[in-house]
């Protein structure tokens, strides 16, 4: 990251001839066109939330006639509010659990003299290879047997269990690269493992923990398969599932559906822009030197 501003691999050092100008113009034009293709559909989505049905069925490129928030307010009151609160709860709770458990595990795998460590490493990281789709049928009855079907806990536990391998992978990599000088000094001072974890290792891992949290939020906020199968009814459904049910129950009241989609897209885009720096640094650290 520190070298960022120093790299300009494709920029010709000299000889700015006509061809270079043309190709540069072409490149910029290409980037702008691509940018329009990426952003315009999203703007269209937000604008459609301001239209009424007749306008939606009219010219799709037209701007809305009025800027009434009615559809947004309606969408918010007719379910989106509930879906957002369930999604928030599930995302925050599973995010906390995942990061805590992963940090513990990574600590155990890098800082202790645990016997059979390679076995444990293989077991935890092997979970990376297993996909949720494969587990879904048996999980249906398992969740019912545990009395967790249609509760927040089902999703919190599953999101944690399926994300711990990946987060552990990241945090463990980071811990392996951390210097042990501070640990050793603390051991000399008679600190216990627990104290070392909470006071030294965890604070040092802050950057990677933040990246893990962001990646987890992206995952949990958007997860669909488990959410669709393990929750039913308003009050237990997360946003992605809620959106499809809004779509199914609103007939052709498309304006409200567009408004609901826009509302559910916004928070995560805002989170990304706010935490962009951490996010990129985390990825950068993870990719290796």
């Amino acid at each position: 990251m520190t070298k960022l501003s120093a790299i300009r691999p494709l920029r010709p050092a000299s000889r700015m001839n006509v061809w270079a100008v043309i190709s540069k113009t072409f490149l910029h034009a290409f980037l702008i066109c691509l940018g329009i293709v990426v952003i315009y559909p999203l703007i269209w989505m937000a604008l459609n939330g301001f239209k009424n049905n007749a306008q939606i069925f009219g010219n799709p490129f037209a701007l809305p006639i009025g800027w009434s928030w009615a559809n947004y307010v309606q969408a918010w009151n007719q379910g989106v509010r509930d879906y957002v609160s369930v999604s928030l709860l599930v995302t925050v709770a599973s995010g906390l659990c995942t990061v805590l458990v992963s940090a513990w595990t990574a600590f155990g795998l890098t800082r202790t003299k645990m016997p059979a460590k390679p076995l444990v490493v293989g077991f935890v990281l092997g979970g990376l290879m297993l996909s949720p789709t494969v587990a879904v049928i048996p999980l249906v009855r398992m969740m019912q047997a545990l009395g967790l079907y249609n509760t927040y806990w089902a999703l919190i536990i599953l999101y944690t269990a399926f994300r711990v391998p990946f987060s552990t992978f990241l945090i463990r990599a980071y811990m392996l690269d951390l210097s042990r000088d501070l640990d050793e000094a603390a051991v000399m001072d008679g600190a216990s493992e627990g104290q070392i974890f909470w006071r030294i290792t965890l604070p040092l891992c802050r950057p990677i923990v933040v990246s893990c949290v962001i990646l987890h939020v992206l995952f949990a906020w958007n997860e669909y398969l488990f959410a669709m199968i393990f929750s039913s009814g308003v009050g237990a459904q997360t946003l992605p599932v809620g959106l499809t049910s809004i779509m199914a129950t609103h007939g052709t009241n498309y304006a409200e559906v567009f408004a609901a989609m826009t509302i559910s897209a916004l928070p995560i885009v805002i989170v990304f822009f706010a935490a962009q720096r951490y996010f990129i640094r985390g990825l950068s650290d993870g990719i290796g030197k």
């Binding site: 249906v140 019912q144 199968i229 039913s232 129950t249």
Partner: peptide, 23 residues
Amino acid sequence: VELIQESDDSVKGKTKTLVASNS
């Protein structure tokens, strides 16, 4: 009274999931 209100399209899948999970 707790309501789960599904649409014409989603009620089939939802019913079967509820049956399969004994819920």
